[in-house]
Each structure stands twice: as structure tokens, then as C-alpha cells.
Design a binder for these strands. Structure first.
Lengths: 131, 131
DNA sequence: CATAAAACTAGGAATTGTTATTATTTTATA
DNA sequence: TATAAAATAATAACAATTCCTAGTTTTATG
């Protein structure tokens, strides 16, 4: 992946400028405001390439579409299993020890942003209690 | 959710009897071997209900379909970001402290099986190196 | 600067996992 | 055993994403 595509820059810039972990469709709509001609498949293709090259992280959940986050400084993510929203936070792990254990037992090689916490967010918790 | 449905029992039994974290389609095919008449949507509906009732855990990833695991004894999961496969392992966390931190900073309430490790598995790592 | 090769794009068609719908069957219970 | 609630089978519908084709832009090289 080289870097000369204007469209790819637009997609990446959109992700750099926001902290709300948008979906592909949201990114498409936002980029389209500045670049009327860009197509949906271009956004999808470039998101895939950015993820492939570890410039962007993708989150999947079954109750929301995939969401994306530009990888800048190290932080962890908590994902709501109900609505799929992503929340940033910081925690100092003994990352090397965890990495070793996971690798020994499973063969899976993880990186810093590879520890994901899944649960239920406040909003969804309240909604659950109110019915 | 009451418990009298033969079809739901078949789906759950299938998950109890395996440790390979199958997809909905795989579960459907396996159950269908024993119960020729069961329909795809019945499998999907029952999986949703089992997840909803915390009897089964669902994993989402963008390079594979959702996968399912019967929740029995506590263990952690490592997910391959390339192929979506799930690997079991055990690690003693200071779970309460992590739970507190996540909750304070994000409002997300996690449970034991809510810590997921994402990385690249051996097979995918080799594949990557061989091209 | 000319030009050929490589990489990328737009736009829509096609695919695919999942859910919704509807008519039917099963279950609980009085 | 009558009846209402819940679950089912089968298929249609849906929505997110990828694929495909032709055309455009960029890059590399002489």
C-alpha cells in the first residue's frame, strides 16, 4: 500500500479527526460531504487496507456494524455487547506476561491494542432495567 | 425462555459436546444430521435466546461469521483477527481490579468471560510469511 | 516529456449472513 | 379436551459488504 490516493487520505483524515469510533457507513457519509464523488466501495476498500496495514483498528460486534479507530497512542477499549459502542480507557497491564501466556497456550500473538473488554454499557443497562 | 423445546436442546447439546467454537451455519449442519427437519432460522433464533440468557457466549469478528461457545467453567479466549478462530486458555487475572477500572472509566460492566485477546494465530502468521 | 505498467476509482450488480413473516404445530393449564 | 401462548418450518426480505468492469490517475523509466 502506497500513499498517493486522495480518497484514502480522506478516509484516514476522517478517522484521525474523531474519537467516536464510527461505522463504515458513517465514515462514508462524512467523507462524502467533502468529496461528493467518492463511492461507498472505495471507502470500504480503503478501510480494509488501512486495517490490513495496522494503521486503523476494526471492531466487530453482532449488534452493530463494524467500527473503526485510528491507532495513535496506546489505549484500551471496552465494547458494549448490546449496542456495539466502543469506549476508550487506560490501564497499565503487565502486558509482556499476558502476551507470553496467551502465546504459549494458544499460539496467538497479540499486540497492545489486542486486549478488548466486553460488557454492557450504562445506557443499555438502564434500558434493560426499565422493561 | 422455557426449556421444553427439543430443537433448543439439540442446539445446546451440540455446543456442550464440542470445543471448537462453531459458527451458526456449522451448528445448523451438525444438528441437521440428527434432526433432518430443523430449520436454519430455528437455530439462529435459539442461539440468540441462549446468548440473551447467558448460557452461550457469542464472538464476532469481521473475517469470519459469529462463533458460539457454551459457558461452563471460566476460561479466557484468544481470537484470531485474520481467520476468526477462537482459542481457549486460562490466566489468573486480578479480575476485580480490572472490572473496577473499566467500569469507572467507561461505565461498561464486564464479566469474567468479557476479556478477549485479539491477535494473529500461528496458521495465519505462517501463511502471511509464506507469500 | 512520452508512455507503458501498475494502482486506484466509481457505480452498480451480486453475494451472503441474518432476521422477519406467516401459517402451522406444540405445549401448558384450566 | 378446549384454548391461549409459545415455538417451529419454510421462505421471503433485508442490509452490509464485496465483486466486477471499464475507465482514470499515478508512478517509473528512458
Amino acid at each position: 500500500m502506497k500513499n498517493y490516493s486522495r480518497q484514502r487520505e480522506e478516509v484516514l483524515e476522517e478517522l484521525k479527526g474523531t474519537y467516536d469510533h464510527p461505522t463504515a457507513e458513517e465514515i462514508y457519509k462524512r467523507v462524502k460531504l467533502k468529496d461528493e464523488m467518492i463511492s461507498r466501495s472505495t471507502v470500504y476498500r480503503n478501510l480494509n487496507e488501512l486495517v490490513e496495514n495496522k494503521i486503523v483498528k476494526r471492531f466487530s460486534s453482532s449488534n452493530s456494524n463494524d467500527r473503526y479507530d485510528y491507532i495513535d497512542e496506546v489505549h484500551n477499549h471496552a465494547v458494549c455487547l448490546k449496542c456495539g459502542k466502543i469506549f476508550d480507557f487506560k490501564y497499565r497491564f503487565n502486558f509482556n506476561r499476558i502476551k507470553e501466556t496467551v502465546e504459549e497456550q494458544t499460539g496467538v500473538i497479540i499486540e497492545n491494542e489486542g486486549i478488548v473488554f466486553e460488557g454492557i454499557c450504562k445506557d443499555c443497562m438502564n434500558e434493560q432495567n426499565n422493561k
